[in-house]
């Protein structure tokens, strides 16, 4: 058979044809915030686990609550994406182990109490006094605080676990959808986790951290970025070694429609530039301290946006 092929189809379902567009802005926003929150929880908990004796800044202490706020924003986006919003309770009438979406909805439910206890235990005495001064809250906050303090290390470990779960799951959500060659890679879970760590770190860098906290966060950020670069490389290599659908996924990022956005926004501006700035910044204090974290956040968002769009566009219908 010669290569010439004409295909005519009568299907024209909205959001399906000619290119899948079932998921809009809500999903990358959610994936981004979810990853960022995962990063915040993990870094916050790790810092305390690794350096239990160090003092902590107010910013770091309040961060778990900020994380839950951001997560709520992400969940709002997710909720807005539902076509049948009144049925949202259905997520919690079932657990389906093959469905990352189901895992995710239960993980989200877990993140709230863990994050809350993590945050509660992080409060300094003055903050605790302020809270306990409220009569309505005091009766049940007091025992909770006592419990959170008592099981502090367990709570922190749970926070790391919940964070890792959250970060991985945002990637697995897409990574298990083998119908989209672009997402059909085991790398997506760790990749989104690494990106979540790095965006979480970048987010922290916007706040007034003490010197040691700052150093810790930057070190982890550098590590996460390096890991992310390695994982991206692994992803591309994986596509290159795969079948024709994987080859096409590679093409999307190497020559195809998402090439320039991917390489400029994600790899260059989102990873390489801030990595260089952070490495150099250790030796000489650079001005524009906020630039590197801003680039990382933008890059992290672009990564999810591009992979979501490219994934929806990648389909077996490209190979009739």
């Amino acid at each position: 058979m010669t290569g010439n092929l004409e295909v005519v189809t009568t299907r024209h379902n909205a959001a399906i044809d000619p290119v899948l567009s079932a998921w809009g802005w809500e999903i990358p926003v959610y994936l981004f915030l979810g990853g960022l929150v995962a990063g915040l929880l993990i870094l916050g908990a790790l810092y305390e686990l690794l350096h239990p004796d160090r003092p902590r800044s107010r910013a770091l202490r309040a961060m778990p609550f900020a994380a839950l706020g951001l997560l709520s924003l992400g969940m709002l986006a997710l909720f807005l994406d539902l076509a049948h919003k009144l049925h949202v309770y259905r997520f919690y009438l079932a657990f389906r182990w093959t469905s990352p979406m189901s895992w995710g909805s239960w993980i989200l439910l877990l993140v709230y109490p863990v994050g809350f206890l993590h945050g509660l235990g992080s409060l300094d005495p003055a903050q605790r006094e302020t809270l306990l001064a409220r009569r309505a809250l005091a009766p049940f906050l007091r025992p909770l605080l006592r419990w959170a303090d008592g099981a502090r290390r367990a709570v922190l470990k749970a926070s790391v676990v919940a964070g890792v779960g959250l970060g991985l799951y945002t990637g697995l959500l897409l990574g298990t959808l083998a119908a989209r060659p672009q997402w059909n890679t085991a790398v997506l879970g760790p990749l989104f986790l690494a990106s979540g760590l790095s965006t979480g770190a970048a987010f922290l860098l916007f706040f007034r951290l003490d010197e040691r906290e700052h150093g810790f966060v930057v070190r982890w950020d550098v590590g996460a970025i390096v890991l992310e670069l390695l994982l991206l490389g692994a992803m591309l290599l994986g596509f290159a070694a795969g079948d024709r659908s994987a080859q096409h996924a590679l093409y999307h990022l190497l020559g195809g429609p998402w090439t320039s956005a991917f390489w400029s926004l994600v790899v260059f501006a989102g990873l390489l530039v801030p990595l260089a700035m952070e490495l150099l910044g250790r030796r000489r204090r650079l001005p524009l301290a906020a630039l590197a974290p801003a680039l990382i956040l933008a890059g992290g968002f672009a990564l999810r946006w591009i992979l979501l769009a490219a994934g929806q566009a990648s389909s077996f219908r490209e190979f009739p």
Binding site: R90, L93, A94, F95, R96, W97, T98, S99
Partner: peptide, 12 residues
């Protein structure tokens, strides 16, 4: 059949 606990598990 299959993969996990559907809401039938609750008899709903």
């Amino acid at each position: 059949a299959g993969s996990g606990l559907a809401s039938r598990w609750w008899g709903a």
